[in-house]
Nucleic acid binder design. Structure first.
Length: 364
DNA sequence: TAGCCGTGGGA
DNA sequence: TTCCCAAGGCT
């Protein structure tokens, strides 16, 4: 590798950032001092994993309001933790954050990068970012933004992530020279606002030294990565109601929507609709929708089945008072059915047989 | 190691 | 409509 020294190549980044930086609720005023609240940095970094700044801001504010310090978070119950995270996605991050807060409350902050990387939910990027932004350690944090910026600046062929070790070694002197917190955030801010996939090189402070720009290779550096197609499925999403209670699946430890409460679901490929027959129950349906996750596409058909009385719930199921529904953490899909319960639906001409559905609940 | 884990916004 | 992707980490 024969890259120009990072101290010189990245020098314009510092004054540029001091001029244009966004005012974010977790961002310190003085970027030359250690952050006054390392916990706020930790919270922001976990929330920002795979999540855009505009989405995080209101969640961050609410989170610090509810859990202002590590001990408060560590002592909170899982439902209330997930409730504040509700809608933000990747819910495992909330549990990691609580576990990390428990460690910090008991043992204090780790004193080095390896210590931070040992906290749950902190990988190579997040540990280095907290080190630099909270503690002013010269620990190079490479996220998707930084990889894209540096790949273009240095004309790195192929996947820049394969050069992570080289890039960290190269970047460290620039952190030392221009300030770890400032430089770390400047690099990401450039990638998030200017050096985006379709960049606006006209306003970039580094364009006069950017290899990809000078060689007209912005379009193919870095290369786009092929993604796997999400798997398709179709399901019934069912709210059973009886005696003022609704039936919910209790939170699971792993898998999709782990940590959240869910409505019972039934594979629509095996539970075929049939003409609705009169019975000791009533069925209400609403128009369905496509629920999109990273690796799945669900065709969701929401139903409400009102029963005369409750049945004994199988393992993993629980009858909850209907008025408690608003206090339980739900994913977007299940929030949507919860909200439908207060709106008029229609008796569907065809629906799966409730008795068959209930019987299948105990066969899981 | 490649698949898994949410959601929302923009092109 | 469809695809991309956004301050990644875990197994």
């Amino acid at each position: 590798m024969s890259w120009p020294a990072s101290v010189d190549l990245l020098a314009p980044l510092a004054p540029w950032f001091d001029r244009v930086r966004r005012d974010l609720p977790w961002r310190a005023t003085d970027l030359d001092a250690p952050h006054p609240d390392p916990y706020a940095v930790l919270v922001s970094e976990l929330m920002l994993q795979q999540t855009q700044v505009a989405t995080v801001v209101p969640y961050f504010t609410r989170w610090l309001d509810e859990f202002p310090d590590p001990r408060t978070l560590a002592e909170a119950d899982d439902d209330s933790v997930h409730k504040v995270w509700e809608g933000l996605g990747y819910y495992r991050r909330a549990r990691f954050l609580k576990a990390a807060a428990g460690y910090v409350a008991a043992e204090g902050w780790p004193g080095d990068l390896e210590g931070l990387a040992g906290l749950p939910g902190l990988g190579p990027y997040t540990a280095a970012a907290v080190g630099a932004i909270a503690f002013q350690w010269p620990t190079p944090a490479l996220d998707g933004n930084a990889f894209r910026v540096l790949a273009r600046l240095l004309v790195i062929e192929g996947d820049p992530r394969a050069r992570a070790m080289d890039l960290r070694t190269w970047l460290a002197p620039a952190l030392e020279s221009h300030g770890p917190s400032r430089m770390t955030q400047a690099l990401m801010e450039l990638g998030a606002t200017v050096c985006i996939p379709s960049p606006t090189c006209g306003v970039c402070p580094l364009s006069n030294r950017c290899g990809a720009y000078l060689e007209s290779r912005i379009g193919d550096i870095p290369p786009v990565v092929k993604r796997t197609r999400p798997k398709a499925s179709q399901l019934w999403l069912v709210s059973f109601e009886a005696e003022g209670h609704v039936l919910l699946q209790t939170p699971t430890a792993r898998g999709l929507l782990a940590g959240l409460w869910c409505w019972p679901t039934f594979d629509a490929a095996t539970h075929h609709p049939q003409p609705t027959a009169p019975g000791p129950h009533s069925i209400t349906g609403w128009p369905g929708w496509i629920q999109v996750y990273t690796h799945r596409r669900e065709a969701v058909s929401p139903l409400h089945i009102h029963l005369k009385s409750r049945f004994i719930p199988a393992d993993g199921l629980r009858w909850a008072p209907r008025e408690n529904l608003v206090d339980l953490p739900l994913g977007r899909r299940d929030q949507r059915l919860r909200d439908l319960l207060g709106t008029p639906g229609q008796t569907p001409l065809e629906a799966p047989d409730p008795v068959t559905l209930i019987r299948s609940l105990s066969e899981r």
